[in-house]
Design a protein around this nucleic acid. Structure first.
Lengths: 105, 105
DNA sequence: CGCGGATATCAGCATGGGTTGATGTCACCA
DNA sequence: TGGTGACATCAACCCATGCTGATATCCGCG
């Protein structure tokens, strides 16, 4: 795994947690599917701010949207989060095996 | 898990991946322990920049340091990465179980 | 059809964090 | 002891991103 600016793991991690409000939204969506109006209510943030963060999550492929009339419900994509968890598990494994190797200076 | 600005999961994720260069450093440290001079060489970044990012990782408890004379080696803490992976696995589980719950508007 | 509600987007502004060059401190060597 | 190398830190600068108020668009209802 060569992590670069375009690495999906880094991008997903930053999309999920790169901002405190967005991390809060993620936590809320992990409890139930919610529409924008609920997220605005729960977080106390302004509507455009909430919409902006939902857009970041949407474009990162971390949420699905389901329009219901005037309301838009968001679902956290468990499969995408699980992929990230797996990738991090792999990183931990590699780090474990990397111990003891000392490159000379 | 109530993710907030102080949440260790969010903080670890951001410390690991919040900047492309830092993510790159993390990937390098997952292959072997390296000293600052190696990381400067491998990444092509300036020394203060590399030091700054190492500091972020250090203060987040994600790397251990081992001074060897004038050289400082860094080790990615596999256990810390594994904890993050576990937490994300839990988040994915919860998101999976959250499907189907629709709060009325 | 007109109005109100939900929300996605736009444009402008402020701030935090990354990068840079300079500096300070410690370790090593002749 | 003095000089050099490694690197942690400092201070200044810049830019990407989050936040705000305004606007546009779509949907539902009387």
């Amino acid at each position: 795994m060569l992590i670069s600016a375009r690495d999906p793991v880094a991008e997903a991690a930053v999309a999920l947690f790169g901002d405190p409000l967005r991390a809060r939204i993620v936590a809320l969506l992990a409890t139930e599917q919610m529409c924008t109006c609920h997220l605005i209510e729960e977080t106390g943030a302004r509507q455009p701010t909430v919409s902006h963060h939902l857009r970041v999550l949407r474009e990162a492929g971390l949420v699905d949207t389901e329009p219901k009339g005037r309301f838009t419900y968001y679902r956290l994509r468990a499969e995408a989060v699980a992929e990230l968890a797996d990738a991090l598990g792999g990183l931990a494994d590699r780090a474990e095996r990397a111990g003891g190797h000392y490159r000379p200076c």
